[in-house]
């Protein structure tokens, strides 16, 4: 049933008036990663990878289209790189932290695990939280703010 629903979603993407643009239909194929994830490791890795690469390009597009963000690019990039590097070791531990089979094994963990690893979860949850508002295109104010940032000039 899950697969049928997924194929129906892809079919509906292909049948809409923009089906002449194949990119839209091809893009919608990534929905398949989600129902396939429990069956195939590649689907799971694909789901993660596609999501992140999309997000990278969307972020770059928003920065490029923002007038204010162009002013101090290197300061922001340096700060960003520093935070990412600082969180890298925590993220590695985080993967073990959220594994179900490790539920009992972190009982005697040190303070780093107890107090710093949850920061990675907080960052992830906050990312979901902000994105939930940032990409809520049904909200007129959000559309008003995001549209000029998200769209570049039409292709010639």
């Amino acid at each position: 049933m899950t697969f049928a629903a997924c194929f129906a979603a892809i079919r509906s993407a292909a049948r809409t008036p923009q089906s002449s643009d194949r990119a839209k239909t091809i893009y919608s194929l990534r929905y398949l990663f989600i129902p396939l994830a429990p069956f195939s490791d590649f689907a799971y890795w694909g789901m993660l990878s596609c999501h992140r690469v999309e997000y990278l390009f969307v972020t770059l597009k928003i920065r490029e289209n923002s007038i204010g963000a162009r002013a101090q690019p290197w300061t922001h990039l340096a700060l960003y790189a520093a935070i990412v590097i600082a969180f890298l070791p925590l993220k590695v531990i985080h993967e073990e932290f959220i594994a179900l089979e490790n539920v009992g094994s972190f009982l005697s963990s040190n303070w780093v695990v107890t107090y710093l690893v949850p920061l990675t979860l907080v960052v992830s949850y906050s990312h979901y939280f902000i994105d939930g508002f940032l990409f809520k295109f049904s909200n007129p104010r959000t559309r008003q703010m995001m549209a000029p940032l998200l769209l570049s000039k039409p292709r010639s």
Binding site: K91, S124, D131
Partner: peptide
Amino acid sequence: LFVSQFIFLNHIHVFFTFFLTFSVPEV
């Protein structure tokens, strides 16, 4: 997992949101 987490940015992509928040005045 290494490929998806690090080569394809799973680890750092959550920070993109904060990066956007701090660096884009409109946001």
